[in-house]
Simulated scan of single mutants.
Amino acid sequence: MIDTAILLAAGEGSRLRSAAPFKPLCRVGGHTLLAHALYGLAQAGLTRAVIVLGYGASEIEAHLAARQWPLVVETVRTDHRLPNGSSVLAAAPRVPGEALLAMCDHLVDPSLYRRMAQVGAGGGTRLGIDRRIGSDWVDLDDVTRVQSDGERIVAIGKGLEPYDCFDTGVFATGPALFAALRQLEAPSLTEGMRILAATGQAYLTDCSDLDWIDVDDQWALDKAERWRSISARA
């Protein structure tokens, strides 16, 4: 089982600026998005997280230093103006083998983390996908869409047509993705996955039975608050 996570938290988060000056410190259900991610990863059985910071790095590092966490936490920095693949590459030297790759601004059922950590990268990169394409928890204009063929990803991207599932933002990954990203002048995660898809190294695991939400704007934040409220009462 994978025991290390790469957690991307470098973005500017301008669409959530009214809720928090730095997106990882935006609160949902009384806890920051960063805390939700770290506690969720620990609950899933991971023991180490490499957090990639950019915008507001000093403030977020101060937040991390102010408390104890249920897993080992390390930080690396990148330029928040670069594509997200640059964040992945910033963490790569700290991860010699496979890692779980997750987004700090996604609220995720810890069981989704666990499933992806258990299944592993399979020699390429494996993405947790959601086939609930009619879900009203997803912003169709913003979500990354995926076209699949069995266990393989054949196409991926925002605005993709046709598509049959969504990218949950949780991957089991490793050297194959790092190598693909290093081929790109402006390395984005989607472009890296396209390289792997072209070589048959981009796989998927169905996580349609597990909940997640990309907290990218006020609309999503309101939905996330309702989800956490329902979960707390359950």
Rank of each mutant, 00 (worst) to 15 (best):
V154Y: 06
E74R: 06
Q183Y: 04
G150P: 00
D109W: 11
G45E: 01
S188D: 15
D164Q: 10
E161N: 14
Q218M: 09
A197K: 02
T4D: 09
R67Y: 14
T125L: 04
H31G: 02
A44C: 00
W69T: 11
T190E: 15
L25I: 00
C26R: 00
D142N: 05
T75E: 12
L7R: 01
G134E: 06
R77Q: 10
R233P: 12
L89Q: 12
D217Q: 08
R48V: 13
T47G: 07
G45T: 03
R228I: 15
D222H: 06
R94N: 10
A10D: 15
D130A: 09
L34H: 03
T199I: 14
T125Q: 01
D217M: 05
A197E: 08
A19M: 00
I156W: 01
R27D: 04
T190S: 08
R194E: 14
P110A: 02
S229T: 14
D136Q: 09
H31C: 04
P187M: 10
Q118L: 13
M103P: 04
K158E: 10
E74F: 13
L7M: 10
V108F: 08
D211H: 10
A232T: 13
V154H: 07
A117S: 09
V170E: 02
G124H: 05
A9G: 04
T205A: 13
G45A: 05
L8R: 04
E61N: 04
Q68S: 14
G29S: 03
Q201P: 12
P83W: 12
L107N: 04
G40P: 06
R77H: 08
D216T: 15
L16P: 00
G192L: 10
K223S: 08
A49R: 07
R77G: 07
Q201M: 15
A35K: 05
S58A: 14
T199E: 15
L46E: 11
G134C: 01
L33K: 00
T205R: 01
F166H: 10
E12W: 07
K223F: 09
L101A: 11
G85W: 11
V146A: 01
Y55D: 12
Q118Y: 12
R27G: 01
D109F: 07
V52T: 03
